[in-house]
């Protein structure tokens, strides 16, 4: 399954490497990534491919990392975006 991960917060070093490490640890593959900073706010979007069985623990670990990084990480299934934004 595909999932979209968004990361928002104050820019600092090591955000992408930390998030990528969690993703790799759950055997998920990054399909697409875009990142920018807007007025010192770091904004990253990532599309990943992950086994459904690993998805719940991946989300939990990402939330734990979000607390460590003091950033907001949201994870939604690709189907949610397809349902809402594509006909």
């Amino acid at each position: 399954m595909h999932s979209v991960i968004t990361v928002l917060g104050k820019d600092k070093t090591g955000i992408i490497s930390t998030v990528s490490r969690v993703i790799a640890a759950h055997k998920a593959n990054i399909l697409d990534i875009s990142q920018t900073t807007m007025q010192k706010t770091f904004v990253m979007m990532m599309m990943i491919d992950v086994e459904e069985n690993n998805y719940k623990s991946l989300r939990e670990d990402l939330q734990n990392e979000a607390k460590e990084l003091q950033m907001t990480i949201n994870t939604y299934h690709e189907d949610v975006y397809n349902a809402m934004h594509r006909i």
Partner: peptide, 17 residues
């Protein structure tokens, strides 16, 4: 990216706010 930042943010706001 398959979805635009606006679409992703709109979805987040609908659920969380």
């Amino acid at each position: 990216m398959h979805f635009t930042p606006f679409e992703i943010e709109e979805t987040r706001r609908m659920f969380q706010e």
